[in-house]
Design a protein around this nucleic acid. Structure first.
Lengths: 330, 330
DNA sequence: TTGAAAGCGATACCAG
DNA sequence: CTGGTATCGCTTTCAA
């Protein structure tokens, strides 16, 4: 377990002063080629690695950002969404010397206490519900924050998928394939995603000259999707297509249709949202709106790093395109 | 953006020396009740938070552990497994002041370079394949490592689910419900999980006095499960149950059975492994072996923290129980 | 039990 | 362009 060399030893080995070594390491232009070469040689030879703690102590930067996830949102952990975001965030950090800290927020108070400039340079917040006071608190303490998922009302920097656009794509696809009685299984309207997906679907119906009279609400769960579809079938037995605001809701719809003996897509076409493993393994496999989750994570870090560097607008938003993955259910 | 107070200011406010403040903060017994009270009051009043960098600089500990995930294993990110592990690890760290660093390993060399005592106190490694040289490298450099998932051959500290036991449970369940021609859709035999699940299944067959002649192999994927089942049906058209080493494989089997018009569970019972969202949403919902993934994460940190503290055996292993979630497919 | 003083390893400013 | 020096905020002797 050999001890790591310090900057001072590098300086001695290279026959230069500590200042010079530091300049070379941090890519300062004020260093002669000669010095640069000597220092780099010494670094390579000694296997020198700068001590983050020491650096952080004087620069007052931590070179780390936190990804904060509310512990209460069990969905995050049992759905692939979380992993994909993490992967995207990590990819965005790849070439940047910045570390990713994971903060699963058990206790909001304690977390707010912890997330200071002393510990992180910035924060990415994974939030489902729009009404989180945390980003505001952070910003007011000088800690840049970026949300993944648009907040419902609170203004903040965020990255999101084009949920409305995705819903539009799906409904357009249903209409284009000749469906005329298209039902919408909408998500909860106290979340931005729920609102946006319904809005997009409604728009597409209007554009196709179809009525938007068949709307029922759920909470994104399978059971709620099943219930919502039953509700729609009560008023419109002639329904020939369904757009669900989530894949589990679509799966619930499939279940109901099967139990009723209605063929999919023969009698009723079904489209979901998220292009998740559920869509892929459903019977029949579900046409579903695909979100670029990894890209959202990457965009979020990029935005955050820009904000930390002070080179980003104060409250920027990035909205990424979705596309439709077409499978056998439509 | 108020500046955080330093320890020195706390000392001044409390009317004691810096040494005393430090002792109180770190719970040293060598501090009078009086001093303790004064210091704590000052800390509360000033909102003091110790500076990790400064502390780390002198203690030579980082108070952080890394969770390392091979980037190449796309499975990790698109399956809930990853999120659940993260959640468990995070829960294990909850009361410990230790931070969780996420390292998605793009480049093994660079990562090995990075993971020194200077940056982390220890490492948790999420590895699918058994042949990872990283843990060994780390240990030899004095960085404690704990694997999640038993390595195939390399000796190392690890936490794992009782894969063999889980497979045994599933096959026992099939046999107990009167099935006599039970096929095994095994996973790849170059992974410890694949080996263990097949071993457990075989054991259970033997214990039930049934032959273990119906075994076909796959790679855990849906397609491979479908292919493997077709293979078994060729030689044993009278097959009346299948145990698959993964849920996707089981889903593949369901698909084949459906296309052949065989009823599940009427004609053939099907059991999977992982109790994933796929099992839950399959048609019919799959009986599947449940692994305590969160608990594995928690156990892994606990083990790691013990090793860091030097209070754990040198190469300990923790194996956690699985259970069977029974659904309609059996 | 306590305070004072000496570092931990880096950066940043300074004069040269 | 360069080397020395002060400094970041904390822990840890050491002497009192």
């Amino acid at each position: 377990m050999k001890e790591r060399p310090t900057l001072e030893e590098v300086a001695r080995r290279a026959g230069v002063g500590r200042g010079t070594v530091s300049r070379v390491i941090n890519g300062s232009p004020r260093a002669s080629e000669q010095a640069r070469a000597a220092v780099n040689a010494a670094i390579a030879e000694l296997g020198y690695i700068p001590n983050r703690a020491a650096r952080s102590l004087v620069t007052r930067r931590t070179d780390s950002v936190a990804l904060v996830v509310p512990e209460s949102e069990e969905r995050f952990f049992t759905e692939p969404f979380f992993g994909r975001v993490v992967r995207g965030v990590s990819a965005g950090l790849r070439d940047s010397e910045v570390q990713l800290l994971l903060a699963i927020a058990q206790d909001r108070r304690r977390l707010g206490h912890y997330l200071t400039r002393q510990h992180v340079d910035g924060v990415i917040l994974l939030s489902l519900h729009g009404e989180d006071p945390l980003p505001g608190e952070l910003e007011s303490r000088g800690v840049p924050a970026v949300l993944i998922g648009r907040p419902l009302t609170t203004p903040a920097a965020y990255v999101d998928a084009d949920n409305a656009g995705g819903a539009r794509l799906a409904v357009e696809h249903l209409a284009a394939s000749g469906r005329r009685r298209i039902g919408i299984l909408a998500g909860p309207q106290d979340m931005a995603v729920g609102v946006a997906r319904l809005a997009g679907a409604t728009e597409a119906l209007a554009a196709a000259g179809l009525p938007a009279d068949l709307v029922a609400y759920g909470d994104f769960s399978e059971a709620s999707g099943a219930a919502a579809l039953r509700e729609l079938l009560d008023t419109a037995p002639d329904l020939d297509a369904v757009f669900a605001a989530s894949d589990p809701m679509a799966a619930g719809a499939l279940r109901v249709l099967r139990s009723l003996g209605r063929a999919v897509p023969g009698d009723v076409a079904v489209a979901g949202f998220d292009d998740s493993v559920i869509a892929e393994h459903a019977d029949p496999p579900l046409t579903s709106v695909h979100q670029p989750v990894e890209a959202m994570g990457t965009a979020a870090v990029r935005l955050l790093l820009d904000r930390i560097a002070g080179t980003a607008p104060d409250r920027p938003a990035v909205v990424l395109d979705t596309h439709l993955t077409i499978r056998q259910s439509t």
